[in-house]
């Protein structure tokens, strides 16, 4: 299977990515396409991509040589749900930023996990609204300077991975852009999961976040990720105080539940048996 060499070009339309230099999206696109390659896909014909608005939504659309639906802000998950219900045999994958998935589109994320629609959501968390100029996001750490919190942010950030675990996801993990190998493995597991799967990728936005947050360059940001990352197992051993400001990485849940498509098929079976349902 691995006799052919991986080349990103095989999976791309050949259009130039518009990301800033040092952007984490390059790493993430690479990790995903490698994961796809390692799963044995020579092309993306078994995939449909849905994404919203934000830089990371451009990872698939229109750059992947694939079917991609680039939706309004925050609405990629409902569109992905519609695609999946009609074509359950396809891998439906969502890419979106933290603003898109955990801000404006958060309720769709929770409900997708709850109803266990068999899609995969990759949330690129750069802790900021990058495309619009670096405003505060629901994931921005407390007391960070952003363009809309000039005196530093005054709200607590949300832990999206734990949220989807509570909501019913079958697979959930978090890694950062420095954990390339782990990220790739998590992406593979997510794609192979039967049921709702979610991977949060903590990523760097050197232009809109790094600069204001006081990082001199990309390397410093990545170093910050490295220093602050602790494993799920380790996080369980330390106090809440010690945990503050840390990025907890690893696998948070792996489980099996009947999917939305399974449930709907069951309803169809019931409906066909009960011919005398009263109207």
């Amino acid at each position: 299977m691995m006799s052919e060499k991986f080349s990103m070009r095989n999976y791309l339309r050949g259009l130039k990515y518009p990301f800033c230099s040092g952007c984490g999206n390059f790493t993430i696109a690479n990790a995903f396409l490698r994961a796809v390659f390692e799963l044995g896909h020579k092309d993306l014909s078994k995939f449909v991509f849905c994404s919203g608005i934000g830089c990371s939504s451009w990872i698939p659309s229109p750059y992947f040589l694939a079917d991609s639906i680039h939706t309004p802000h925050g609405r990629s998950i409902p569109v992905a749900t519609g695609v999946k219900l009609m074509r359950p045999e396809l891998n439906v994958v969502v890419f979106g930023g933290d603003g898109d998935i955990a801000g404006i589109g958060l309720s769709h994320l929770i409900h997708a996990a709850r109803r266990n629609v068999d899609i995969t959501v990759f949330m690129v968390n750069n802790m900021v609204y990058g495309m619009t100029g670096g405003q505060v996001a629901p994931t921005t750490p407390l007391h960070m300077k952003t363009s809309s919190t000039p005196y530093t942010s005054f709200e607590y950030p949300i832990d999206v991975v734990n949220l989807v675990v509570e909501a019913g996801a079958c697979y959930a993990a978090r890694w950062t852009t420095i954990h390339q190998k782990e990220l790739r493995e998590a992406m593979k597991k997510a794609i192979l999961t039967r049921g709702f799967s979610f991977v949060e990728i903590v990523s760097q936005c050197p232009t809109m976040f790094g600069r204001r947050a006081g990082f001199k360059n990309v390397t410093e940001m990545l170093e910050w990720f490295r220093k602050n990352s602790i494993s799920v197992e380790e996080a369980e051993r330390i106090s809440e105080e010690e945990l503050s400001g840390k990025i907890v990485v690893g696998e948070f849940i792996r489980r099996t539940r009947p999917t939305l498509t399974d449930m709907i098929r069951e309803v169809m079976r019931k409906a066909k048996e009960e011919t005398s349902i009263e109207g």
């Binding site: 609405r75 569109v79 749900t81 695609v83 219900l85 009609m86 769709h108």
Partner: peptide, 21 residues
Amino acid sequence: IQMEDEMASIGTAIGASWAGA
């Protein structure tokens, strides 16, 4: 299917339409 709100309802219908529905 009953969705979580009207935005999700029409969005899901749009996704289905692109999947041939």
